[in-house]
Amino acid sequence: MGDYRSKFAMVETMMNRRIPQMICFAFGAALFTVFFLSHPLAKDLNLTITVDYWQIIFAFTLIVGVVSFVRITIKNIKKGEDRPYRIVSLIGLIAMPVLALIWGIRGDSPFMWVFEYVQVPMQSTVFALLAFFVASASFRGFRARSAPAAVLLIAALLTLLSRSSLEGILPVYFSDFADWIRSNPSMAARRAILIGIGLGSLTTSLRVLLGIERTWLGGEK
């Protein structure tokens, strides 16, 4: 009995950790090598995996997400948690594929009507709402208590004023100075952050390929 259990545990570890790690290394090493090859076959392979295969797997991943959302929503409807809102979400979700199935997704279809007159106005209003929260947060947070905080405040004000309708009223050098701040000191920090991101991504990718970084496999088993 104990022997079976240990064999089962071994197979489970193989399936859960070893095989995914080996696949991860094999694909990583292959695509890393392919990058340095100029043969058309290598370029084709690179494009096929990174464009077509990725898109297809991501599409299935999205469907998995949708199924998961529907399951959780139905569970919450049964429990009675925020029932009317959950039902509205579910109706919206089901309505779109149904409309697409019946009338198609052309420009004048009901599917596109819902997109244009329901989804887009609400989405852009949610985006616009953040203007108020950003403004109120800045009103509370923007205090020139220290020299770096003063630099932050001045840079933000320069950008805001130079890009607003006051641009014509303010002297030309004001706008030029704002542009200089954006293209030089601001750009320098942005560039350093990008270099940092690059170095971080590089080391993380190496750690993943070599099996040092295994958090993507989930839990302990």
Partner: peptide
């Protein structure tokens, strides 16, 4: 975990030179 391994592995392989 297998498709995730393919995505992460190929992503890491592409990311290093890129």
């Amino acid at each position: 975990r297998i498709p995730i391994a393919v995505l992460i592995g190929s992503g890491a392989g592409v990311a290093i030179p890129a």
